[in-house]
Simulated scan of single mutants.
Amino acid sequence: MAKADHWVADLPQTGRRFVVTGGSGGLGLETARVLAANGADVVLAVRNVAKGAAAAATLTGSVEVRRLDVADLSSVREFAAEIGPVDVLINNAGVLAVPYALTVDGFETQLATNHLGHFALANLMLPQISDRVVAISSDSHRLAKLDLTDLNWERRPYKGFTAYTTSKLANLLFTAELQRRLTQTGSTLRSVAAHPGSTATSITGNTGNGFKTWVGSWGHKIAGMSVEKGALSSLYAATMDIPGNSFIGPDGFKEMSGWPTGVARSRDAVDPDLAKGLWERSEELTGVRFPLPVAPTE
């Protein structure tokens, strides 16, 4: 894959419809802003509709606000049932290193928000998607070790950042297994992933630890990129002609900053057995299954 040196988001998208989860701020809002400015019809899928409406008012172009709480499977099902045809789903919403808590469905918050909700959303929407699913991961996935027997942190001492890295590894395993299944069925849909490097957003603001929040916020501001540049990886993954299971990130030092390009991932992130195992556990937990018939393997 060619490096997108000095790539600028000049992306004619007229006639194409995008759903951006977590679109009321940060990378999601910037992604939506560029897409709408280039002619796309953009749906901001947000938990707080009032905040989403205020964000949408700052954008130019065709923008719609719809309620979606990816940490609540009933909300996910309702949204998927009503959304209609979509070209691209960008699974962007996320939380980082939050204190331990359970969602209404009984799942650990980061697992639910960053992985399970988006897993369910993508599978429920898949028959209505015409182009691709984009998962927003993180380079911190390299630090994760996924325990399929304890996804909910019921046996292990909970560590907020470790749970975050695990959820970001889950995003890449989801991307790989979804692409495998799409290819096996002969579908032309693509499953791809991206990460924004070190980008200054408000995602570090809910750790429950003032020092960690301060370090995360200022670290990104000092060593990282603006939201405008950080969103380029997401935009590249969502609009460029790239192969399925691509992983897009910044091309600079340790992928902290730079222009979007294809990047590597950890050994665990390309483990097909781990990807299949996570998929099966995710189906069990959410009650949502891959909606297309999967051809038998030879």
Rank of each mutant, 00 (worst) to 15 (best):
K229E: 03
D72Y: 11
E177S: 04
L96T: 08
P293A: 13
L121G: 02
V49S: 12
S198V: 07
N38L: 12
F161T: 13
G230C: 06
P157T: 14
P272A: 00
A53V: 09
V294Q: 05
G25Q: 13
V76S: 05
F161M: 15
T109Y: 00
Y100V: 14
S24G: 15
R142F: 11
E228L: 10
F107G: 14
D131R: 02
L232W: 00
Q179A: 12
P127H: 07
A237C: 06
E280A: 06
A163W: 03
N209L: 13
A144L: 15
W218V: 15
A80Q: 03
G160H: 03
F174L: 14
A231N: 02
L232V: 10
L121E: 00
V20N: 02
F253P: 14
R267C: 03
V192R: 09
E255L: 15
V192W: 04
K229F: 03
N38D: 15
V215Y: 03
A170N: 02
A4T: 02
A170R: 07
L182F: 01
A237R: 02
E255H: 13
A37R: 06
G61P: 04
V98F: 02
D131C: 11
D5P: 03
A200H: 04
L169C: 11
K221D: 00
T204M: 10
G244D: 06
P12M: 05
A45E: 09
L29W: 02
A32R: 04
T162Q: 15
G52A: 03
D271M: 13
V63I: 13
V49C: 11
L278G: 06
